[in-house]
Structure formats: C-alpha cells, structure tokens
Design a protein around this nucleic acid. Sequence first.
DNA 1: GCTTGATCTAAAGTTAACTTTAGAAATTAC
DNA 2: GTAATTTCTAAAGTTAACTTTAGATCAAGC
Lengths: 151, 151
Amino acid sequence: MASKGGLAIGDLAARTGLAVSAIRHYETVGLIAPLRNAGGHRRYGRADIRRLSFVMIAQRLGFPLARIAEVMAGLPEGRPPTREDWAGISGAFRRDIDARIAALASLRDKLDGCIGCGCLSLDRCALYNPADRAGQRGSGPRYLMGDAVDG
Amino acid sequence: MASKGGLAIGDLAARTGLAVSAIRHYETVGLIAPLRNAGGHRRYGRADIRRLSFVMIAQRLGFPLARIAEVMAGLPEGRPPTREDWAGISGAFRRDIDARIAALASLRDKLDGCIGCGCLSLDRCALYNPADRAGQRGSGPRYLMGDAVDG
DNA sequence: GCTTGATCTAAAGTTAACTTTAGAAATTAC
DNA sequence: GTAATTTCTAAAGTTAACTTTAGATCAAGC
C-alpha cells in the first residue's frame, strides 16, 4: 500500500467497507475527486475517508447520492473541512429528517383511521388527499420516506 | 365504459388516478388478477379498486411492491375482503412504520452527536455501529467495519 | 525480471417500478 | 358500418446506485 502518496483505492475500500466499484462510482457522480499518481492510479487522502463516511451516513438516512453531492458541494475546496463545515451541511439533513419523521407519523395515524373505519375509498380517505401527494413524477424507482424496508 | 361486466382498465385508471401501464404492471407482479371478457380485455370489479387503494397507501408508506404483494396474499381468495381483513394486514405495516420512525429518530440523534463532536470516524462513531445496520441488501461482499482507522 | 495481484477504462448487466413504443385486434361513437 | 378510441402483448427504455466483465496496464513480491 502506498502510504506517502496517499491511499490506493483498495486501501480506501478496506477502511470504509465500501466496494472498489462503489468508490469509483461515487467519483463519477462527483462525491470525491482523488489525485492520480504517475501510472494513472487514484490516490486518496485522509479527508476522503471522512467524505465517504458522511456519504454512507447520509445514505443510511435515505438521501439519494445526487442530494448528498449537492449538500457536500458546500464543503471547502482548498482546505480540509473542519468540524464546523460538517456541522453546517448536516444541518440541512437534520431538517429533512425531521420532516420525514413527521410525514411518516402522520401517514401512520391516517392509516389507522382509514383502515379502522373501513373507508379505503378514493373520495373520502385522508390518505388520498391530493395536497399530501408530493412530487410523484418520472420513471425509475421512487424514493419514499424512511429507510429501506426489508421483508 | 362496460359497467355490467366490470370496469375496463381505463375506467379503473380514471378512478384510482393510476396510469393504465401501472395497473398492468401491478398485475404482472401479482397484485391484482382481473377477469377477461370475450375479446381478451381486462375487466375489474369493485374489490379491485380497494386493492389498488391499499397498494397506493402502502407505497406511500415506503413499502416495495414485493412486500405489499406478500402481505396482500393474506387476503381471502373467494370472497371480497371485509374491513377486518384489511385491518389485519395493515397491522403488519403499522409495526413496520413504527420501527422505521424509531430508527429514523435514533439516526437523527446520533447524527447530531457525531457531527457535533466531530468524530465522523469509523472506529468510534455510533452511526457505524454494525448492530444498527439492518438491511444491507444487494450482492457483493460487504465488510463489517470495525477496524480502527483514524482518530 | 518475471509473475502475481491491483487498478485502469468503458460498456453492459441488475433491481425496482414503471413508461414508451409498435403493431394488431377489440370496442365505442356517430 | 366506418372512423376513432381503447386495449392487447411484448419488448425496450428510464433512473438510481451499483456490480460485473473484458482487455489492458501498473505495481509489488521474490
């Protein structure tokens, strides 16, 4: 492992638990920008471990990579990010999480009400309130609130 | 619109707000099983509106179609489901939702703590606690993180 | 110095949940 | 009884987040 010139992608993978292919993918979507050595191999620095850590946390919280990249664009370019930098960008996530929790709780309560009364009909059910139905457009997978559900 | 022999797929789409293509897709994944008329066109009954309603609600709650199909397999085959039938299967979702809310709240608190203290490091951060990491799906070897890395 | 082993790039495959397209047949409207 | 509309099937396209594959090059161990 090259330690003076930075970590090789395999080393970074071992440290973060991510797959090498995943790290390369994060680069293509703009989450990290490693240097290259003479032979064209990627070399990562200490700050990159932290960046990936943050990506992993944000993902667990249910944020798509595009959103994470957006938020991480707020980190400084030249210098390594400080604790304050991280705290700043995580604030944006906090607000999102709080909103998602509230939405989930509200839906749960409505589910109870609707199923309980047996309405389950489009004209009256609170769950169908059009005002509630946020952006439901486009194709591809829908990212709904909360963590991934597994059976 | 054919009303005596059941609803046509377009009528059902109009009533539920779903796209015709989506309804057909739900059939291929086993969520509904309409009859066919002499010409081979799908005919839906009143119970199908309710089934789709439930699917839409469950989806908004973040459940994948496969899971919804699993749960809906608990509905009766021969007779139309009663309110009790629906209440029974929605109970499974309720428990899931409550768990997800709790998980989100816990993650939010840990995010506050971790970012606040600036640790964001694999060895100590509560967010990396392997015990917390529930559904890690997908293929490929996922390492469990635990190796001390950097302070 | 040679043989592994790691990395490189680019492209294609995967899963979920659909949509879009294409050509044909059934239904409805007038 | 046409013309217009709807529906049919099957296949391919879309998005997100990756993984897999293939062929080539770089780096490391002995």
